[in-house]
């Protein structure tokens, strides 16, 4: 007589009040991190961080010359490709939601788009720091191996503080990519915009500074590339920090705010 015990499953399923917990931020971060590297392009971008670091180390050992075999040289050689790859990773995490239209799903799972963007920003920061620690490690290995091959003393001429400055500069670069991604929301256009911003714009300001005296004085205050570039070479003075803050406000923070506003308000189609 089991039939009498059987309830229609429908009633049980729909009348019971169900409550749900909000999605915790940590979970969003872990999902966004996964989304950055679970595609072929994401995987190769990640792999290229390691590949280029190794290639750069090898290049310094092969062609650097004995007196170039210092920790500073290795770290710089590895750090330069990072200024291109890492910002692209940050940028694509934003633009793919639009270019691949995954935002349709992402932003229905999490209607509060600000939380999704914040999770992506946390991933960007985390990847930047981890990648630079990896750069330091590969650079150190290269320094030890390179100097022992050449038979010269191993020179550790890069302070932890200076390395922190380089990491900061790299993370700022990543957020330039992040910002351009928010503004443009299209993968190819954002990549082009990044190269214009980083390389074309900085060449132009350099040219302007070398020909126009008035601009040479002004440059540290208005040229974010310039102010940020100082981080690679030295621990900034108080004035240089101010340069970085003022130019960063104009070239990074303001456009970031505009991009964020666009993303929060635009239609997702």
């Amino acid at each position: 007589m089991s039939a009498t015990l059987t309830q229609p499953s429908a009633t049980a399923e729909t009348t019971a009040p169900r409550t749900y917990d909000p999605i915790p931020f940590s979970r969003l971060v872990s999902v966004e991190l996964r989304k950055m590297f679970d595609t072929r392009s994401g995987f190769w971008l990640l792999a290229s961080v390691g590949i280029l670091a190794t290639l750069a180390t090898g290049a310094v050992i092969l062609w650097g010359g004995d007196d170039a075999l210092t920790y500073d040289t290795f770290a710089a050689a590895i750090g330069i490709p990072m200024t291109v790859i890492l910002p692209v990773i940050a940028m694509l995490s934003i633009t793919s939601e639009w270019s691949q239209r995954t935002g349709l799903t992402t932003f229905t799972f999490v209607p509060n788009r600000g939380r999704v963007i914040a999770a992506k920003a946390a991933c960007t920061l985390g990847i930047g720091v981890v990648a630079m620690v990896m750069v330091a490690a590969i650079g150190a290995l290269g320094n030890v191996v390179g100097s022992s091959i050449a038979g010269v003393d191993t020179v550790w001429n890069l302070s932890a503080l200076q390395f922190t400055m380089i990491t900061l500069a790299t993370v700022l670069n990543m957020f330039i990519g992040f910002m351009l991604g928010l503004l443009v929301r299209n993968s190819p256009a954002a990549i082009v915009a990044y190269f214009v911003y980083q390389f074309v714009l900085s060449s132009l300001t350099m040219l302007l500074a070398s020909t126009q005296e008035w601009f040479a004085d002004l440059q540290p205050w208005v040229d974010f590339n310039y102010a940020q570039g100082q981080l690679f070479d030295q621990v900034p003075s108080a004035e240089q920090w101010a340069n970085l803050g003022v130019s960063g406000l104009v070239w990074l923070v303001l456009p970031l705010a505009v991009g964020l506003r666009l993303v929060l308000r635009s239609e997702v189609k």
Binding site: T39, R101, T105, T108
Partner: peptide, 13 residues
């Protein structure tokens, strides 16, 4: 459950 456009998925996943 929402399905607005089945083609709106990352082609590489």
């Amino acid at each position: 459950g929402v399905l607005l456009d089945a083609s709106a998925q990352h082609a590489g996943r």
